[in-house]
Nucleic acid binder design. Structure first.
Length: 512
RNA sequence: GCCAGGGUAGCUCAGUGGUAGAGCAGAGGACUCAUAAGCCUUUGGUCGGGGGUUCAAUCCCCCCCCCUGGCACCA
């Protein structure tokens, strides 16, 4: 059984979860569920990043201990997962002992190998912002912006990781592994970035300046800062589980690809003698251009509210159907409703309901066997074979939006098949041939429905389960065996009706 | 400025060196099992602008314009 380890980025607990967090969880979950369907042994990790300056400051502002603060915010992030039906196997917090232990081990190893050294860092420091400033922070005239308050040039000792020495190695690695980063144009971007010389990476902060972090094992006067803490979660969570690492894929936002995940992370692992992960998937962002406007009129859209309003599967379906992984997409309620109404309610939901209704009305609620296979049946069978054969490679290549489009086309074709056979007419005829056609058409539409929703079950797991249930069907364990057109539903007792994805009440006319 | 992605029907996008495609929206029609759903037909584009290569370019090359994102020690 193939091992497949997949992670989301860990969320920084300095605010509440929003659409971006939700999307990354859903996308990763869809990949995880798909790989499970394909028979892989999947391990799915998500979690939170709980150290750092901002957390320390936020806790202080509220007059509570950092640990109490992160306990509260982390709970919020964790609560998001069941709401989105996320099937993660583990949830890591960087304040956990298992994580700190591995971080310290890796740091110690690198220090012993001479990959980490101490040096003085001289720079302009803002006391108010508690950070060093960069030249680019300066105003055109050379002065520092007001928000930084008093800025003084200070010298500070810190520990540095020898990033620079691995630049050529990384270029060679990326050149050899063309598909390390998805989409591929992101990989080009990384190589572009690597044309400029790298500097060594500052990985520490003196404790008097930052208390809330993991102490360096070789100098307790410092804590490690950001990268060795946050990135190592992917490894620390499974370090004691043989067979998981390194079959790893990291799902991240495009904003943290370069340099952290595409440069620091591979080099850190390589230097520490840890095998590299299989790949990185960098997704784009949901844009809400209209959000500001609607906010001013008091109609701000919190996308997560759509989960409560339309159900988790509709939300998941929209995110995956609408977004081409890697690119950006606009999130609007209008677009959501278009997908919801036309694809989920009218096309799929209505197919479910009419199938149940006709089976109840014309066959006493028990699915008959298909007896004939004429042109309409053969056409649908052929389309199914084509759809299934295209669907899987599309998902393997993270082209879920196209895969869903194909699945929806098959549902449309099933609706068209029903029109062609018109069971409601056949039901009025006592001719034996018409009765045979009636039984055939009922069996065919139900089987097509079963197959169609089996295909999309990684995106809409609850819906697929519900439809199987009303079809009186219990699927087997092996997903791929479910994808053969057959007679699995013969004799099944179906429910009388089910309105999935009910259409929302007509929208109140928008403001004049 | 540099790099990347993109500019194709009202909207969202696919696409190929050789008569321009899909979905949604719009229009018309036949039907009634169904969530006033579904099905069939259909209007609609000088494929950002200019030049070049070619028998032939939306697709290749060059220039220009516009949009988006990135340009490190910041999560």
């Amino acid at each position: 059984m193939k091992s497949f380890y997949i992670t989301t980025a860990i969320d920084y607990v300095n605010g509440s979860p929003h659409l971006g967090h939700a999307y990354e969880k859903v996308l990763t979950d869809v990949i995880a569920r798909f790989r499970r369907m394909m028979g892989d042994r999947v391990h799915f990790l998500t979690g939170v990043d709980e150290h750092g300056q901002k957390v320390q400051a936020s806790a202080r502002k509220r007059g509570i201990a950092p640990q109490q603060y992160v306990d509260e915010i982390s709970a919020e992030f964790r609560a998001l997962l069941p709401r989105l039906n996320i099937s993660n196997d583990d949830f890591i917090r960087t304040t956990e002992e298992r994580h700190k232990k591995v971080v310290r081990e890796v740091l110690q190893r690198l220090f012993a190998q001479g990959e980490i050294y101490k040096a003085e860092y001289k720079g302009f420091y803002s006391t108010r912002q508690e950070q060093f400033l960069q030249e680019k922070d300066r105003l055109p005239g050379g002065a520092w912006p007001e928000i930084f308050g008093e800025v003084t040039e200070i010298t500070e000792s810190n520990y540095f990781f020898k990033l620079r020495g691995y630049q050529d190695w990384l270029i060679e690695f990326l050149t050899k592994h063309e598909h390390f980063i998805f989409p591929s144009y992101r990989q080009k971007q990384v190589l572009e970035f690597l044309k400029e010389p790298l500097n060594d990476l500052c990985i520490s902060r003196p404790r008097e300046r930052l208390e809330w972090g993991i102490p360096l094992p070789f100098d307790e006067g410092y804590v490690t800062y950001v990268w060795f803490d946050a990135l190592l979660n992917y490894y620390s969570a499974v370090a004691d589980q043989p067979g998981v690492w390194p079959a790893a894929w990291h799902v991240i936002g495009k904003d943290i690809l370069v340099p952290p995940h595409a440069v620091y992370w591979p080099i850190m692992l390589h230097a520490a003698g840890i095998p590299l992960p299989h790949g990185i998937i960098a997704h784009g962002w949901w844009l809400q251009s209209g959000a500001k406007m609607s906010k001013s009129t008091g109609n701000a859209l919190n996308p997560l509210d759509l989960v409560a309003e339309f159900g988790v599967d509709a939300f998941r379906y929209f995110l995956i159907r609408e977004m081409n992984v890697g690119q950006d997409s606009e999130f609007t309620r209008e677009q959501f409703l278009v997908r919801y109404n036309s694809e989920l309610a009218n096309n799929l939901g209505n197919l479910v309901n009419r199938t149940l209704n006709m089976t109840t009305r014309f066959a006493g609620g028990v699915l008959p066997s298909a007896e004939l296979s004429e042109e309409p049946e053969q056409e649908l069978h052929a389309l199914w074979a084509k759809t299934r054969d295209e669907f899987i490679p599309l998902c393997e290549g993270f082209q879920f939006h196209t895969a869903l489009e194909r699945a929806m086309q098959f549902v449309t074709a099933t609706n068209a098949y029903i029109e062609k056979r018109a069971p409601w007419k056949l039901g009025k005829s006592a001719e034996p041939r018409d009765q045979a056609l009636l039984r055939t058409s009922l069996a065919t539409m139900a089987e097509a429905l079963r197959l169609g929703v089996a295909l999309i079950q990684h995106v809409t797991p609850a819906t697929t389960a519900k439809i199987n249930d009303v079809l009186g069907y219990v699927p087997g364990d092996a997903w791929r065996d479910e994808l053969h057109w057959g007679q699995k539903l013969d004799g099944a007792s179906v429910a009388a009706a089910l309105v999935l994805f009910p259409r929302p009440a007509p929208a109140v006319p928008p403001k004049g």
